[in-house]
């Protein structure tokens, strides 16, 4: 292995790592919002909302992410919706993760004991107040482990948007290799960078999880 190549490539790879982190962060925020409201739609009593939510989740869980990326980036321009690579990537990643998150949110809301909703409404709270004050704070705690997991998978999935020319970490590595012809060295460096990023977030999320479940028996 040639260390000068690593040192020369590192600044570009680090910059690309920031793109990867950025993609993951923006996508997870959108996915959280999307997943949250989809979960509410799926447990609501309104049929139409339920159906829309169910179809969305089923479609995005039932097809490969790579196909979703292709449909959004290469397919949509045919009906005059052209998005740049980065927005396309973010859209695909958030829609995909949102579908998974809505499942964990839904399960975690349903996992809160029935007596909690009853205690809240029996005092005179509205459904919304009971959700906001009593059910959701508890269900988020229940959901945190699966949320962390989805986020870690999302970081890995960002590498798939390299196929639509987003210069995130993997795409940047490939570009550098085209010039240096050192695939083993550069891909290993990329792997280490992914590993560092993922370990970093895993540790943070684990701590967060411990802190939030402090008072529960």
């Amino acid at each position: 292995m040639d260390f000068t190549i690593i040192i020369e490539a590192l600044p570009l790879l680090l910059k690309a790592t920031l793109v990867t982190i950025g993609l993951a962060l923006v996508s997870i925020v959108i996915a959280l919002i999307l997943g949250f409201f989809t979960a509410l739609a799926r447990i609501s009593k309104m049929k139409l909302l339920k159906i829309i939510g169910t179809i969305y989740v089923s479609m995005f869980r039932g097809t490969p992410l790579l196909v979703q990326i292709f449909v959004i980036y290469f397919g949509l321009p045919q009906i005059n919706i052209s998005l740049d690579p980065i927005p396309s990537g973010i859209l695909a990643l958030s829609l995909n993760a949102g579908a998974y998150l809505s499942e964990s949110f839904r399960a975690s809301i349903l996992a809160v004991e029935k007596g909690q909703m009853e205690a809240a409404v029996s005092m005179g709270m509205t459904y919304g107040e009971a959700m906001r004050r009593i059910i959701l704070p508890q269900s988020i705690r229940i959901a945190i482990p699966t949320l962390s997991n989805t986020y870690i998978i999302l970081i890995k999935d960002t590498s798939l948007v390299s196929v639509i020319t987003v210069t995130e970490l993997l795409q940047m590595s490939t570009l550098i290799i085209a010039k240096t012809f050192e695939p083993l060295t550069i891909y290993l460096v990329a792997a280490v960078l992914y590993w560092i990023v993922i370990t970093f977030f895993t540790v943070i999320l684990d701590r967060f999880e411990k802190r939030t479940s402090r008072h529960l028996a």
């Binding site: 004991e113 007596g115 909690q116 009853e118 205690a119 809240a120 029996s122 005092m123 009593i134 704070p137 508890q138 705690r141 008072h215 529960l216 028996a217």
Partner: peptide
Amino acid sequence: TGFVFQQFNLFPH
């Protein structure tokens, strides 16, 4: 009406 449940149903958080 104040309702008291067999299982207390206090808010654990």
